[in-house]
Every structure is written in structure tokens, then in C-alpha cells.
């Protein structure tokens, strides 16, 4: 059953985030936490065979304001319903980012590590394919929309079978 008292923080922003500050806030939000898992996703550099100068490559994230926040909240609430969590924080950046920039942050706290690990992975797997973000890779004059990947759908689907969830569930 969903515990509505678990603090859930969702932020979609162009601004960068401070890992230490977010960790401190998650710690503060939690009641007697035994484990806090923080996942941060970074923008990878994409190489091409006909380009040796990748200085100018960027990744632009478009989103659907309003629906994005709702979708992230829904994903967080599913995690809260499934694991005994004490807090959830999700930050996702939008706009134009450079290689090595931070793009996404997920923090889950719990009494024990398995619930924190699994729920953070669950949130990331759902976020990839179920929140309205779109990535456009731009390098010089070339640009393309990043395709959705079958492996991302499979990563999400495995949570529906329950075979990968061994520990820490409610």
C-alpha cells in the first residue's frame, strides 16, 4: 500500500544540481535511514567515425511541461508503493547540455540497502521510457533525435514480472 507520508521531491529544471546538497536534503527527509542510494546520470560524449573534433557536441532535452512532473511523480509513487522507502528525490535537467554534464539524479532512502538500490533502479528504468523527455544530439551542422531503445523497454518490463526483485519489497 502507498504510504502518503513519504516525502517525494520532483524537479525538472535547466539548472545544474549539487549532489551533496541533495544528499543532505534526502538524509534530512528520512526517518532513521539505514541506506541512501544516489544515482546520477551524465551526458556521454558520442563519437562518430568522420569527426575527430567533438568539442562542439551538445545534447538538447525537450519535455512536456506539466506532464513531465506528473509522470515523474507517478513513477516515484509506484516505487513508494512497492518498497519501504523513507524519501524519494528525482531531478531531471532540460535544455542544452554538454558532455559530462549531470542530467538526472535519483535518490532513494530506506532502512535497508536492497530497497534503496532496487527502487532507484526501478525509477531510472521507468523514467527512460515513461516520462515525456526527448533527446536531440547535435554536433556541428548535424543533428538527430535519439531513438528509443528496445533494451530500455526490456529493462522496464522486467519489473512487471517480478523476477528481478529479490529483496526488500513490501
Amino acid at each position: 500500500m502507498q504510504n502518503t507520508t513519504v516525502p517525494v521531491h520532483i524537479l525538472v529544471t535547466a539548472a545544474d544540481f549539487d549532489l551533496a546538497a541533495e544528499y543532505a536534503a534526502a538524509r534530512c527527509d528520512s526517518t532513521n535511514p539505514g541506506a541512501i542510494v544516489t544515482f546520477s546520470g551524465l551526458v556521454r560524449e558520442v563519437y562518430s567515425e568522420h569527426s575527430c573534433d567533438d568539442q562542439d557536441q551538445t545534447l538538447t532535452l525537450e519535455h512536456y511541461p506539466g506532464m513531465t512532473e506528473q509522470a515523474l511523480k507517478h513513477i516515484a509513487e509506484q516505487a513508494v508503493a512497492r518498497w519501504p522507502l523513507q524519501s524519494v528525490r528525482i531531478i531531471h535537467r532540460v535544455g542544452t547540455l554538454l558532455p559530462a554534464d549531470q542530467i538526472v539524479l535519483v535518490i532513494c532512502s530506506s532502512a535497508h540497502r536492497h530497497a534503496a538500490f532496487e527502487s532507484a533502479e526501478f525509477i531510472m528504468d521507468y523514467l527512460k521510457t515513461s516520462a515525456p523527455f526527448w533527446k536531440k544530439q547535435i554536433r556541428g551542422d548535424e543533428s538527430y533525435w535519439v531513438d528509443s531503445r528496445e533494451s530500455d523497454y526490456q529493462a522496464m518490463a522486467r519489473w512487471q514480472t517480478g523476477t528481478d526483485q529479490k529483496y526488500g519489497s513490501k
Binding site: M124, K128, F133, W134, S148
Partner: peptide
């Protein structure tokens, strides 16, 4: 109503 391609977050 909104129309869009498959989502690619993360």
C-alpha cells in the same frame, strides 16, 4: 491533446 515520438529520458 499531445502528439509525440517515443520518450527518451534519463
Amino acid at each position: 491533446v499531445a502528439f509525440f515520438p517515443p520518450m527518451t529520458g534519463g
